Simulated assay, not measured.
Amino acid sequence: MIRAVAASLALVLACPAFAQALPEFRFSDAAPADYPGVIRLGTGPGQPSEEWFRQDGALQVRNVAEATLTPFLPRPQSATGAAVIVAPGGGFLGLAIEDEGFRVARWLADHGIAAFVLKYRVLPTPADPLTFRRELVAVRTGKGPASFRPPADTPAEALADGQAALRHVLTHAADYGIDPARTGMMGFSAGAFLALSVTAADAPDARPAFVAPIYGRQAPSPVPAKAPPMFALIAADDPLFGREGFALVEGWRKAGAPVEFHLLQNGGHGFGLGRAGTSSADWIYSFHRWLDVNGMLHRKP
């Protein structure tokens, strides 16, 4: 089922209706993000063709071949002990690492939650920037040939990176001042695929305490035996997943696992922390309240 849903993502990306909802594709070159304390997870060989760029002003990165974590830690006096690994989206062709990574992590850290932005491996795209940008527009509009397409499932490399990130944070919980039992994973779009895949894999040393798929697939997803609490959110007018139904949420409910679901009236897809003038604005406060209700923000000795 995951394969079928991801395949539908590739098809929807090429449809005219989705093309009309896309930005104007204004590209520009950009320097790599420079945040202190970046952690190399040791997955992938790394390669010099990694490219950082801006699309419509927002920083993105592609051709990631070595996974890293960028920590955003709260001030000690406001730290709650909770932690979230944040996985940006991008169709596994790149990462919207600013809007769906760094900005989200800063908000969480400002509210007492340790956050770690995961730069996970994605599928290779043409090394030449002009070729990549032309073909990316072709993929998203369905106009013109392209040498790449979104994958039909969470790539094995991305899944391995998600698990490696969780293992690292859990292993070094004392160093970060966090509670392993209150460490979860949040993902946006393709990052939501990844977060659910990590949860479904149910590795003994890489189990998130909670999972938050944000505007990800709504089709059925495997539910682990001891499913963690889930916070799911999507806009009704999301052109990718807004009309898939609610099987994801129903699966968690049938398993008896805690779940909170927000169907926003509007906001489209890819709104990050929220799109002004839509009901997606300030949704992150609902997530914060949900964490609190589930005991994730309660300080412990």
Rank of each mutant, 00 (worst) to 15 (best):
V5L: 15
A6F: 13
V12G: 12
C15Y: 10
F18S: 15
Q20D: 00
P23Y: 08
P23I: 11
E24K: 13
F27V: 10
P32L: 11
D34E: 04
I39Y: 11
I39F: 09
T43P: 06
G46L: 06
P48R: 05
D56C: 01
A58P: 10
L59M: 09
L59I: 04
Q60L: 15
N63Q: 03
A65I: 00
P71E: 00
L73A: 03
P76Q: 01
G81H: 05
P88R: 01
I97A: 12
E98I: 08
E100N: 00
E100Y: 00
G101A: 04
A105I: 02
W107V: 07
A109S: 07
H111S: 07
H111W: 07
H111G: 04
Y120A: 08
L123A: 15
P124F: 01
F132D: 01
R134V: 11
E135S: 03
E135C: 00
R140L: 14
K143I: 09
G144A: 11
A146G: 07
R149E: 13
D153P: 02
A158I: 01
L159M: 02
A160P: 07
A160V: 14
D161V: 09
A164R: 10
A165Q: 06
A165V: 01
R167G: 00
T171Q: 12
A173D: 02
G177V: 09
T183N: 08
M185H: 08
S189F: 01
S189C: 14
L194I: 06
A195K: 05
L196R: 04
T199L: 00
T199W: 01
A200S: 06
A200F: 02
A201Y: 13
A203K: 06
D205W: 09
P208T: 00
P213L: 04
P213T: 11
P224K: 06
A225E: 15
I234N: 02
D237N: 03
D238I: 08
P239D: 15
L240P: 07
E244P: 03
A247R: 02
E250Y: 11
G251C: 03
W252F: 14
L263E: 10
L263V: 03
L263P: 13
Q265E: 15
Q265K: 15
F271A: 11
G272L: 03
S280A: 09
D282F: 08
S286C: 08
R289I: 14
L291V: 04
N294Y: 11
N294L: 04
R299C: 13
